[in-house]
Nucleic acid binder design. Structure first.
Lengths: 268, 268
DNA sequence: CGACGCCTTGATCAACTTCAAATTTTGTGG
DNA sequence: CCACAAAATTTGAAGTTGATCAAGGCGTCG
């Protein structure tokens, strides 16, 4: 992953590990003194695959690590500087899409920080990865990561866990695509975002404001609908008071339980 | 898994390991002399997770192994004789389904021999397992298998591989459910069966006869359609000469490439 | 035979798509 | 900051696909 847009003209900036500054909050507990600086503020060290590594292993891995930034709609590849690589998502949302020869398209998954991107020990699965929002990645050469996987079974295990989670999500989505109406699909999507983006609480527990990481056309590709239908169902939900549309990318959910009900019930 | 139909009245027969006979062809190369008899003819020893075990490990596992038979439509549980368990599919097809509270249903995956059923190291994923055809299982207590997984990293690895394969299939199916027309869906289903059931060749490479493991209602639940639509699209394909319907459960595919085209193209 | 389960076929209907156009938002250059 | 062009979204009207409702056929099992 990293460096993009097939053609070559890309505005992604690759930042050598050493030169990082803005996102790295270097002050931390003393316990972190042996954690590589580049890793200290990284979510992947807690919830991601890197959490399985000792500080020594982390140090070795970090020596080959490269961070990079990518802008919206950029295609992400598992290559960096001619090396095959894997990445962790540091921030942003990545969409996994499948394309048919006649142009029909389906988003088959979304990945959020601190997900791991790539498929060690597995052949291609014919999905393309695209930045849905601006995205920052932390990438390592395949070989280095694979060595690490061999010596840290826990890391393999975490990867397995993530893959199982993806399988659960894919199956949940099969139900959504196969059996839900257009409104239910849109409600399900908003709910998915609400549960994956760290929610911004708004006084009480129920009301929250969401930043949609996808534009209408992407939502449509995710839900197997058209942009027009997505738009119509959003206004449908708005008129029923289930959501408020603050601006096209931001939605307020006054009562998440009502939204949840809307994602599983046909009637009004 | 094993023993079924929630209620209790079930015609599944549990057969203690020692007493197996019919499906076990005991003659085998001398190399197999140290392979447990119960495992000798088992596909799971080659393509399944058991393939990662040494004959010693296999022997230990087989001591706690129980084979069982289940009939069509029986619900399969991860329990046997009050023990939680995992299973390998010896023969038959198992459907994984999701159910909504209002009765809508979606099949989210099919499993064929010698797939492993169960989710070591993972919480529930809210799917129910049902025998689509008559099914034979080989089950082990959870604890025994989990111990085995700990001492045989290769077995974990195979399990991971199978899960990745399931993820690929689920994502492929997301494309089918989200973006294909009814005919394309039905064609895709037949193609899926053709590639998963060991095909019965018919002279040349292209023509083959398939036994459908699902009835129309199940196919509909798999494709997110109604039985009526499935039926209509099958006759549609028949009239176009892409399939021949020998009897409701058996279909002949004269040219698999035409079927493949039908699964991805809209027109006639 | 007769009942039941399963599948097919037909007619009508509703949901979603398609086509078309208006409106809002965003980006760019002066 | 404004003007203007391009992109994204919304809205409307008409068209299609697949669902729903309703019969009828076929095969199996008692």
């Amino acid at each position: 992953m990293v460096l993009g847009k097939a053609g070559g003209l890309s505005d992604s900036r690759a930042i050598k590990a050493a030169g990082i500054s803005n996102t790295m909050t270097e002050r931390k507990d003393i316990h972190n003194s042996d954690i590589p600086i580049i890793c200290q503020a990284c979510e992947a060290r807690h919830k991601g695959v890197c959490g399985a590594l000792t500080s020594d292993q982390l140090t070795r891995l970090s020596r080959h690590t490269t961070k990079s930034a990518h802008s919206r709609e950029e295609e992400l590849h598992n290559t960096f500087e001619d090396q095959e690589s894997y990445s962790n998502i540091l921030s942003g949302v990545v969409k996994l899409t499948k394309l048919m020869s006649d142009g029909r398209q389906q988003i088959v998954g979304l990945q959020f920080a601190p997900d791991f991107m790539g498929r060690p020990f597995s052949e291609q699965n014919q999905v393309t990865m695209e930045a849905a929002t601006n995205v920052r990645l932390c990438s390592f050469p395949k070989s280095v990561l694979e060595d690490m996987l061999h010596e840290a079974p826990d890391m393999q295990h975490r990867l397995h866990q993530q893959n199982l989670e993806e399988l659960n999500e894919a199956r949940e989505w099969l139900l959504t695509l196969g059996r839900k109406s257009a409104v239910e699909k849109v409600a399900s999507f908003i709910l998915l975002i609400a549960t994956n983006i760290d929610p911004e609480y708004n006084g009480d527990d129920q009301s929250r404001v969401l930043e949609l990481p996808l534009r209408r056309a992407d939502i449509a590709d995710f839900l197997g609908l058209t942009t027009e239908t997505v738009s119509r169902q959003l206004t449908n939900l708005r008129k029923r008071g289930i959501i408020e549309i603050e601006d096209r990318r931001t939605i307020k959910v006054p009562d998440i339980n009502r939204l949840d009900r809307a994602s599983r019930h046909v009637g009004s």
